[in-house]
Computed example of a mutant assay.
Amino acid sequence: MKILTLAVLLTILFSADSINVENSTKQFFSRGHTNNWAVLVCTSRYWFNYRHVANTLSVYRSVKRLGIPDSHIVLMLSDDMACNPRNPKPATVFSHKNMELNVYGDDVEVDYRGYGVTVENFLRVLTGRLPPSMPRSKRLLSDDRSNVLIYLTGHGGNGFLKFQDSEEISTFEMADAFEQMWQKRRYNELLFIIDTCQGASMYEKFYSPNIIALSSSQTGEDSLSHQPDLAIGVHLMDRYTFYMLEFLEDIHPTSKTTMKDLFKVCPKSQCVSTPGHRTDLFLRDPGSVLITDFFGNVRKVEITTETIDLTEPITLMEDKSKSGELRMESRTYGDQLPVSEIIHQKPKAKDWHPPDGFILGLWTLILLVFFKAYGMQHLKHIF
């Protein structure tokens, strides 16, 4: 009887815990998100992998166009095709035939370059396990209200992705990194996109909540290249990324296009391979998730239900006395100057001061006039 009672109590406790976890999870995700981040990685080296660099830079261009700033993008390029000796047009990387679109513009900020693109650095960026000396620009400073886009391109196989032809990252390592991110509250929702051979094998082991995963090919399939350019002797992009970017070009910041539309990008008739996606870990219906929830920017706005009275006096600290003492003065929002008047109002006489270098310039002018009038000989007589 005691054993039965104990079993019943344990069942009740575990049921209560599971209900509490479920409720806390729902409450956590109902808060929404306030910022978007992107981690864009090209894992290939050598000139014949030109297309992988172009893939990454093209996605970089798209997310910036839709509003994600460089401060929220971690860009990793394992080789600098722009300065490769074989490049007929140095400092450029093109993603379309006939060199129509240079995706290596003047405002590209590469955070990890060359031999800095390693499995270790990639995992450290995701999990936040970076040394204190690492600058802010190389960190993923996401939080529990961040939607994170992770894009990978390169050469892969069944359950692994190569980094610079010298090391590999496995699907188990990726799954573990995402679980660490979830436990450390480093994302609200996560979109994982991989353009590589057998890409679907890289998300088969994921188990953390609120992840959408997309791939350019199924396990056992190759992911094919696109747009060969005879002028430089290489392909310019991969098929899946090419059609995905063609889709993103029609997206604007206020677009109502959803993730289900992204799933239809590059059917087998265009990709030759079979693109895949996984949504069983995601808590929302992908049909209600906007593309801009990951590819666009989110303004940091806190919504409040409290009523704010704009006629209520506010206290200002102003210098009203001759002795320079601060005095308290109450005003209402209605008493303040309109923005247009604030912009065009002239500074007070007591607040005006000569611009930097004005005094030095004035003395220089006086000396020039003196030398022109009297010359160096007169100056020698004076001294």
Rank of each mutant, 00 (worst) to 15 (best):
L4H: 13
L4E: 13
A7G: 09
S15W: 03
A16Q: 08
S18L: 12
S24T: 15
R31V: 08
G32K: 08
V39L: 06
T43I: 07
R45W: 11
H52P: 10
K64L: 06
R65D: 06
H72E: 08
H72N: 12
M76C: 05
M81K: 07
C83Y: 15
K89L: 14
P90C: 01
F94I: 03
E109M: 11
Y115A: 15
T118N: 03
E120Q: 10
L123C: 03
L130Q: 14
P131Q: 05
S133R: 06
L141K: 03
R145V: 07
N147Q: 06
L149C: 05
H155S: 09
G156R: 03
G156C: 07
G159M: 05
F160R: 01
I169R: 00
F172W: 12
A175Y: 00
W182A: 03
F192L: 03
F192G: 00
T196N: 07
C197G: 00
G199C: 04
A200W: 01
L214S: 04
V234Q: 10
D238K: 02
M244E: 08
L248C: 02
P253M: 01
S255H: 06
K256V: 10
D261R: 09
K264E: 15
N297V: 13
V298G: 01
T311V: 09
E318T: 10
D319M: 14
R331T: 07
R331N: 01
R331K: 14
T332K: 04
T332C: 09
H344W: 08
K350A: 07
W352N: 11
P354N: 08
I359K: 12
G361N: 11
F370H: 15
A373F: 14
G375V: 08
M376W: 11
F383S: 10
